[in-house]
Design a protein around this nucleic acid. Structure first.
Lengths: 249, 249
DNA sequence: AAGTGGTCTAGACCACGTC
DNA sequence: ACGTGGTCTAGACCACTTT
């Protein structure tokens, strides 16, 4: 390579040039070739390399910046952005951050961990194949010593092999995954459920009390990354989002 | 006026020209001057009228199209779009549509209606001023005869005066508002609550059973339009959304 | 001072859909 | 055929930030 990854940008000839450029760079970010903090070549370099005018290159970069994949500043240039720690609408939120934003102390404890092929009830709960190796974790998050949310999670080892060697002692699995894996798509479901006996005990609430159940599954380019069920005591938690009729505000 | 509303487009001199054009047209749509279906002048007309280059006008229109406020097609031109009937992430969804999508018959009944200044408990629940005239409605939505969701709503008469004369017999208030009012911003909150005695009876569930409470407040240009509390029996309802780390998919 | 992105122009050609 | 939007160019000047 002659320079900082310029050669990695390759167009596929399909569709408008600005969109080819956008997709080429987006793919370099999503497949991990350009990690967060990596400098993106300046417009004039891309322009020469790709034989496009500056406006066309600019258009691609502006769109990527709007999508949040890159950050642009005059003089200092364009860099690959860090994935957002929280999602404006509904979490993909770091639970430590969530607790600390409420002004409370954060702590967590891993209640159980099992690696390997999932037990039948875990496979059913998360719609897994029995043969698929995973890490299965149950974590309790604490807010100033009080139970905040109960987390049950599976991590797909085929997609995130490094999870097998990670003890998850310094940070909960969700935060570790934000730093050590990529995701391109997520699905959320929200529902209200009554706390079961064990859940009630772990959350220090009464059995049958309403809880908000957040289920999230995450993929990177169609490979499953993780799936998590978060059980919040209903009386104490609300999820708030703001947007306009045509999208987020 | 000499032509189809061209004269209504006025720039304010603040910031980039493309953004002035975007805001000028956006405001004409949001304040109802240009209603859905209205033709937006073609690029060359705006270009002459505003003394900007076609690229600059184009840039403003492309952004408005991306935001969903206008629809553009070659040859036939640009028209003001109809507001989306549902929001991809979390409702602003027509409840009749929601029920019918599940393959069920839809019906609704208005359990109570009161016009005028709010009672103390209503004002408290929706954070209203006691002096503000509203319509207060309690509606039960039915799915094939079974209770589907309980809705309690206030409509701000200062913003939507026509609501005073509307009996809401042919369609529920939410759908009527989608057709007869504009909104530019909404706030949602989700939580899990236990059904109270009266709520449980109206929803045909047990008292204390978990319910998903969706609270939504809607504004148009900072004027409050409506606020609604939707109580869904928890066991039967989930809200699902899909998106990527950088926005909706 | 210099390098980066932000905006804007005046033109060109093309693609598409309606007439 | 024609009018619309979609893309693209080659250049220009400006604004900001770091050196």
């Amino acid at each position: 390579m002659s320079d900082s990854g310029l050669d990695a940008v390759k167009l596929d000839g399909a569709g408008p040039v600005y969109d080819q450029i956008r997709r080429a760079i987006r793919d370099l970010v999503l497949n991990g070739t350009w990690t967060p903090g990596t400098s993106v070549p300046p417009e004039h370099a891309l322009m020469e390399r790709l034989g496009a005018s500056r406006m066309t290159v600019h258009r691609a970069l502006v769109q990527l910046a709007r999508e949040g994949l890159i950050t642009r500043r005059r003089r200092s240039g364009t860099v690959v952005a860090s994935p957002p720690a929280s999602h404006a609408m509904l979490d993909i939120l770091s639970i430590p951050d969530e607790v600390r934003q409420l002004g409370q102390d954060y702590a967590f404890e891993i209640l159980s961990r099992r690696d390997g092929k999932p037990a039948a009830e875990v496979a059913a709960l998360f719609e897994l194949k029995r043969s698929e190796p995973i890490v299965h974790l149950v974590t309790r998050h604490l807010s100033s010593g009080q139970p905040h949310v109960l987390e049950e999670r599976v991590i797909h080892l085929a997609t995130v092999p490094a999870a097998a060697d990670e003890p998850f002692e310094t940070m909960p699995a969700g935060d570790w995954l934000l730093q050590h894996s990529l995701w391109s798509q997520a699905e959320h479901a929200l529902s209200a459920v009554a706390a079961g006996a064990r859940e009630a005990e772990l959350l220090a609430i009464g059995r049958g009390e309403p809880c908000l159940l957040v289920e999230r599954r995450t993929w990177n380019q169609s490979a499953p990354v993780t799936a998590v069920r978060l059980l919040y005591p209903g009386g104490r938690h609300r999820f708030v989002g703001r947007f306009g009729p045509y999208g987020q505000v």
